[in-house]
Amino acid sequence: MSRKTVATAAEALDGLLFDGMTIMAGGFGLCGIPENLIAALRAHGVRNLTVISNNCGVDGFGLGLLLENGQIRKMISSYVGENKLFEKLYLSGELELEFNPQGTLAERIRAGGAGIPAFYTKTGYGTLIAEGKETRSFNGEHYIMETALTADLSIVKAWKGDTAGNLVYRKTARNFNPMMATAGRACVVEVEHLVEPGQIDPDHIHTPSIYVDRIFQGAVFEKRIERVTTREPEQGAV
């Protein structure tokens, strides 16, 4: 066992959790979410969380599990339309919500991990999103200033990782995971396949080990799909 590898999600989170903390969680919809770590957060019961994640899971799965357990105080997201409980908690004032345009959210996190305190973007200029933000013109175009996002903890899902902490994501399950891995003061990763160093070609690594503090192979990957959409085989096709 390397210094970074642990056996379980609970062990991976040991000593890192406190009420009122900010957590970044990777995933787009239910694709590429750290489902073992979310389950462990629920079992631990840490509360009053600010969660930075593109979405908030669905009723009964993903971050929806923390929502129904009353653990989330505030969400920073771009889209939360898949979750009925979310709507109920928000409208009753039990849940705070900050919407970010999806690209702005991604870049704020990237900036947070890269030591860039703020950046300018055209996105949202002239909309509600720009209210209270500094604006500036460059070459005749209008931009708003957005600030970086960091967190006390980032929870990340990768497809494969080695015990040194190098990560490879798979297909569109990559999404927000690589930036989040860089922007948490601690970064905990669950992988489907944990391998020894040398078993991943260094040229194929998406997230270098420097960003990863703890890594483990998840016990269960349900990998639920929100909208299974298929086509019929073509007539006459073999």
Binding site: F28, G29, L30, C31, G32, E82, W159, R170, K171, T172, A173, K223, R224, I225, E226, R227, V228, T229, T230, R231, E232, P233
Partner: peptide, 20 residues
């Protein structure tokens, strides 16, 4: 295109969260 029923992959979705 959308997958055949036996090609569905949870790691491969579009922005509308449909399998592709």
């Amino acid at each position: 295109p959308f997958p055949l029923a036996d090609e569905v992959d949870a790691d491969l979705i579009n922005a509308g969260k449909q399998t592709i």
